[in-house]
């Protein structure tokens, strides 16, 4: 599998750390979100959590799809938040503040992920050499 690449440089490491964080933040949303659905509550957390976990996994795999999924989750969160509390500042704070900070970090990983996408595209043709080239 093409995941077997060695991170090189700070930006790769930072991307991996972010991928771990995103995954770990998504997991309780999925688990708790399912529980909330079973209790008759909002479906947002489970759905968003699933997207976030998928996003984290793809970021770890070095795929820019991961960043795209996170930004999709963020945009969905924005729409949902406005639907649920409107433009109420205190109401928006927990819904958007953390996710937006994370979204900015995810945006910063896009160049790294694209580089890995390209490297993988090359390694798809000649895996062994490409791995050495990264």
């Amino acid at each position: 599998m093409s995941v077997a690449r060695w991170p090189s440089g700070a930006s790769d490491w930072a991307t991996i750390v972010l991928g771990v964080i995103v995954t770990l933040l998504g997991l309780p949303m999925v688990i708790g979100g399912i529980e909330l659905i079973s209790l008759g509550g909002s479906w947002y957390y489970a759905i968003c959590g699933a997207l976030v976990v998928a996003s984290g996994v793809f970021i770890l795999l070095g795929r820019s799809l991961g960043a795209a999924l996170y930004l999709l989750a963020w945009f969905g969160t924005l729409v949902w938040s406005l639907w649920e509390v409107g433009f109420d500042g205190w109401g928006l704070l927990p819904r958007l503040f953390g996710p937006t900070i994370l979204a900015i970090l995810v945006l910063l990983t896009i160049p790294v992920l694209r580089r890995q996408d390209r490297a993988r595209a090359m390694s798809g043709r000649t895996p062994a050499t490409a791995r050495g080239a990264v």
Binding site: L25, P28, M29, S42, Y45, W90, P94
Partner: peptide, 22 residues
Amino acid sequence: KESDMWGMSPIDQLFCRIKYRK
């Protein structure tokens, strides 16, 4: 209401929503 639950992040907000529903 469930949507009145708060927190610093969606996760602790979720925690409080579960508490509310329980």
